[in-house]
Design a protein around this nucleic acid. Structure first.
Lengths: 211, 211
DNA sequence: TTCAGCGGATGACAATTGTCACTGAAAAGT
DNA sequence: ACTTTTCAGTGACAATTGTCATCCGCTGAA
């Protein structure tokens, strides 16, 4: 498959992977190990573990899921950049959400891949990123710049809780606001998102990655 | 392309995998191919493809995700059993939902694995199932029998749409019912599930796998 | 210093939602 | 033939939700 590279490390790319689903984590590692020029040197099942592993091993590339316990992949990426670690980051996620991509790029990620891309593209992306290139789905990239998150922090908080099924009153006590205020924020969010009610608004925000 | 018999020896377990996320599909295949005694003879990215592949290749074991386009993994499993195909089925999913497990067993599945189990357990489960054993998380199994889905078909339909953010009126026209009737069903579902409103009810139903 | 802007709150009003009791018309038992 | 069930609908009422106009206190810039 890759004749130019001998499997004895002429230039082996050293990789750390983070993914909370053990089955997928192991499988991705297996997928990359098949490639002669890539070596998985550590695995993590949450963001904190991941940060520790990356800072310790200083891999060439760090591949991470977004939604994980303890610490998000995006938070982990940001933390790693903050520590001035030269490791390049690839976000690997299920969600084609503009908001996620934007936050990923803000956090200094070099790649943003979707889990429903072809499996072969992962190894290719690792090599590309290692060479210093960026790997982002062009279609998604376009969308990311077009539509910025219109919600304020409060609106986001309120909408998140409303989407879980909380009543206005519950949300109010939960956030230390008055019930009327909560309804105002909700109303504002609903109109900003062009929704008909809080549930639809929450759904829209979720699919855009604004949560 | 179609070697009539095993080129490898004694007893290779022949497997077909179905999973809609290409990256995960390829990775799982790689994971299993590492094992000397397991061979992935076909892959599918949705339920229909999967059924076709299984009926054509008659593998020993069929591993499938649940939530896929075109046709659900559960539906695929049921269809395969209906066709009197001897292939044993393993459901591999993210969701530890009693309702899913119950439907899986009703569909004649031999195994129900969660994606957040350890990666090594997959190959082991394939072997176990191939030997005619069942592989189901004991804790989940207990829960599955304890609490049967209390919802009627109508309540399910109505709740599903309500969870998407539709108003009672929309749901009514959508299902050809009157608005009052919709509210009655919703009210009934809410009380059955011990929820405070439609949103919470939908959330509860979803997490139990009753959707 | 003053004034615009923002976060938060009120109050009022209409629309939607949740609850209940009750009716009627089909199945489905017995 | 005579109950029961089940499914759908009605009407009425209370609670919750969505919308608006308006108000207050604070902060930051002109």
């Amino acid at each position: 498959m890759n004749p130019t590279v001998s499997k004895t490390s002429r230039s082996t790319v050293r990789v750390v992977i983070a993914e909370d689903q053990g089955m997928v984590l192991g499988a991705l590692a297996a997928l990359l190990e098949i490639e002669g020029d890539i070596s998985v040197i550590a695995r993590a099942r949450n963001g904190k573990e991941a940060v520790r592993a990356v800072l310790q091993h200083k891999p060439d590339v760090f591949i991470t899921d977004i939604e994980m316990p303890e610490m998000t992949g995006l938070e982990a990426a940001a933390e790693i950049k903050r520590q001035r670690c030269a490791t390049r980051v690839i976000i690997l996620t299920t969600f084609a959400r503009a908001g996620y991509l934007r936050r990923a790029l803000d956090a200094g990620a070099s790649g943003y891949l979707l889990k429903d891309m072809r499996a072969e593209e992962l190894a290719e992306a690792v090599r590309r990123v290692h060479r210093g290139l960026r790997v982002v789905d062009p279609e998604l990239a376009a969308e990311a710049w077009s539509e910025p998150d219109p919600l304020t922090d409060r609106e986001r908080q309120v909408l998140r809780l409303a989407g879980e099924g909380m009543s206005s009153g519950d949300i109010a006590t939960n956030l230390g606001l008055s019930e009327g205020t909560v309804r105002n924020y909700l109303s504002e969010a609903i109109s900003k998102l062009g929704a008909a009610n809080r549930v639809e608004a929450a759904r829209i925000a979720r699919t855009k990655g604004w949560l």
